[in-house]
Amino acid sequence: MTAISVRALGDEDWQVYRDIRLAALKESPSAFAASIDQEQKFDEEFWRTRMARSRRLVAEQEGEPVGVVSVGDVVDEDDIDKDGDTSEIVAELFGLWVAPELRGKGVAWKLVQAGVDEAREEKRSFAVYWVGTDNGRAVAFASSFGFRPTDSRRSMRPQDASDDEDDDNLEMAMIYPLGSDPGAVPSSVLS
C-alpha cells in the first residue's frame, strides 16, 4: 500500500472538502445526518462558510483524498473565564469517513490521531467523538484508540429528534482525555 498522508485543509481547499464529503455521503448515506441530495445543491459560499466553522483533515494516497475527519469545538460558556481563556473547551471529532477499499488499513487511525494531535496543540483537555450506538465497528475502533464511552446520547438525525428512543438513531459521546487527569469527563459533554 502506498503511504497515506494527512493534512489540514485551508480555506482555499473548499472544493477538496466538498468532493470528499459528497463521496462519503454517496457511499455511506446512513452514517451521516445529512444527505447527498441536500449537500450537492450547496453553492461555493456555503462550502467556504462550512470550512471556516471547523478544521478539516484529509487523508491522501498519491495526492488523492481517501478519507476525512472534521475537528470542531464544543463551547460551553462556563468554560470561558473572564480573561477569555478557552483551555477547557472540548474538541469534537466528527464526519469521519474512509474510502471502502482502505478501511481496516490504518487510515481512520491516522485521521483520528491527527485530530487528537491538533486538539492537544490547541491546549484542549478532551476530545469527544460521537459514535452510532448500533455501529459496533466504530465503537470498537474508538475504544481501541483510547476513547471511553459516556452515558451521553443524542439523535443522529436532527430531523428525527422525536425518535430519540430509537437505538438505531442514537449516537453516544466517547471521550478521550488530553490533559493530566485521564479520569475526568467534561460537563459540556454530559449536558
Score class of each variant (00 low, 15 high):
Ala23Trp: 10
Gly106Met: 11
Gly95Leu: 05
Leu25Cys: 05
Gln159Phe: 14
Asn135Lys: 12
Asp37Trp: 03
Tyr129Pro: 04
Val98Trp: 02
Val112Asp: 00
Leu57Met: 15
Val116Lys: 08
Gly84Cys: 12
Val90Gly: 04
Val75Asp: 08
Ala24Glu: 09
Ala184Cys: 03
Gln61Val: 15
Arg137Ser: 08
Leu22Phe: 12
Ile4Lys: 04
Arg50His: 09
Glu12Met: 06
Glu60Ala: 14
Asp164Thr: 04
Gln61Leu: 14
Gly10Asn: 06
Glu77Cys: 09
Met174Ser: 12
Gln38Leu: 11
Ser155His: 05
Gly146Met: 07
Gly146Leu: 02
Glu171Trp: 00
Gln40Phe: 11
Met156Asn: 08
Asp167Tyr: 13
Asp181Thr: 06
Glu64Lys: 15
Phe145Tyr: 09
Ser70Arg: 10
Asp151Ile: 07
Phe141Trp: 00
Ser180Cys: 03
Gly106Ile: 07
Pro100Val: 09
Val71Glu: 05
Trp14Ser: 03
Asp181Leu: 08
Thr49Phe: 15
Met174Asn: 04
Ser188Cys: 03
Lys82Gln: 11
Val66His: 09
Glu39Ile: 12
Ala34Thr: 15
Met1Cys: 10
Ser191Leu: 10
Ile80Ser: 03
Pro149Trp: 11
Val185Tyr: 11
Ser155Tyr: 01
Asp43Cys: 10
Ser152Arg: 08
Met172Leu: 15
Val98Tyr: 04
Ser143Val: 12
Trp97Leu: 04
Ser54Gly: 02
Leu190Ile: 08
Val112Cys: 08
Asp166Asn: 10
Ala24Tyr: 04
Pro158Tyr: 00
Ala31Lys: 00
Thr133Lys: 09
Gly67Cys: 03
Thr133His: 09
Val112Pro: 00
Lys26Ala: 15
Gly179Asn: 02
Ala52Phe: 08
Leu178Gly: 02
Pro177Asn: 06
Lys110Asn: 13
Glu92Gly: 03
Lys105Trp: 07
Gln159His: 14
Val185Thr: 10
Arg148Val: 12
Asp73Pro: 03
Trp14Glu: 01
Ala8Ser: 15
Glu45Asn: 14
Phe141Gly: 01
Met174Glu: 01
Asp81Ser: 11
Glu62Leu: 15
Gln38Ser: 13
Ser144Leu: 05
Asp78Cys: 11
Pro158Gly: 06
Asp85Val: 13
Asp167Pro: 12
Glu44Ala: 11
Gly183Thr: 09
Gly183Val: 09
Phe126Ala: 04
Phe42Met: 10
Tyr17Gln: 07
Ala3Tyr: 01
Glu92Gln: 05
Asp85Gly: 09
Glu118Arg: 12
Ser191Gly: 10
Asp117Tyr: 07
Arg148Gln: 06
Trp97Gly: 01
Asp163Pro: 05
Asp43Arg: 03
Arg157Leu: 10
Ser162Lys: 09
Gly95Asp: 02
Arg56Ala: 14
Val68Lys: 08
Phe147Ser: 00
Gly72Asn: 03
Leu111Gln: 04
Val6Phe: 07
Lys41Tyr: 03
Trp14Cys: 01
Gly106Ser: 01
Gly183Gln: 07
Ile89Lys: 10
Glu88Cys: 01
Glu165Pro: 05
Ala8Asp: 14
Asp83Val: 10
Phe126Trp: 12
